[in-house]
Design a protein around this nucleic acid. Sequence first.
DNA 1: TCTTGACATAGAGTTCACTCTACATTGTAT
DNA 2: ATACAATGTAGAGTGAACTCTATGTCAAGA
Lengths: 126, 126
Amino acid sequence: MEYSIGEFSKLTGLGIHTLRYYEQEGLIAPERNSGNRRCYSDKDLTWIAFIKRLKDTGMPIKEIKHYAELRAAGDPTLSDRMEMLVQHRQALNEQIARLQEHKIKLDEKIEFYRNEIERTKNNVSS
Amino acid sequence: MEYSIGEFSKLTGLGIHTLRYYEQEGLIAPERNSGNRRCYSDKDLTWIAFIKRLKDTGMPIKEIKHYAELRAAGDPTLSDRMEMLVQHRQALNEQIARLQEHKIKLDEKIEFYRNEIERTKNNVSS
DNA sequence: TCTTGACATAGAGTTCACTCTACATTGTAT
DNA sequence: ATACAATGTAGAGTGAACTCTATGTCAAGA
């Protein structure tokens, strides 16, 4: 299947402007039809899904662009790309660990508030 | 203990400019000494640590500012603050869940690359 | 034929969170 | 007393990632 930018925007949840911006930044390179309109494919769909994953895990656009360039260069860059992903996984693991630490502290803080609120209630009624 | 902005900057790891910016944005309100210099306390130190936690877990400055205002208003806002933190914990839990999902997919992708690289090696030698 | 709506490009504008510059003032060591 | 390092304010600049505006093209329906 092929999609116009409007259809593709709905499928991906990314705005039309954002899709053009991503193209300009070298993240994606859709085909063009006779009238110079963008023609997104199902491959583009899975590729955008992966881009979103990289973005959501904190990879900057510049780095995704680099990955996209390697990808466009085909098989000879397979191990470079894997290397990038292994590095990124490392960062992701650290990020998750940090957030879990923060979660514990936040739970403690909430527990502290619960006690404080109980305490102030008692003060009011005494 | 009390600290000048320079000392406080080193203790917190935040730049002097950033500290002044945080003050301007209403996140923190250090005392001033005779000569109008900022005078940070140990309380400010634990408060900044908490601000960093909120920031690292994705809370925007505006929202932290709101929390800071409630905090400055004292005990009557205890439950409002707790409510904010409970909400934020919810968001944090979702964030962690998303990242763990992403991590699984990334692991799969890396595994896929490992196989692809193996395959292309074989092609070369055949 | 005419109008409308989706699409095209180029470039400007926005928001966030800093980060830096210019210039004035103050505290401290010699 | 003087030099100089740290601090003060006000405001400009930065980089990331969009987001929007202006203007133009083109295919399809009334």
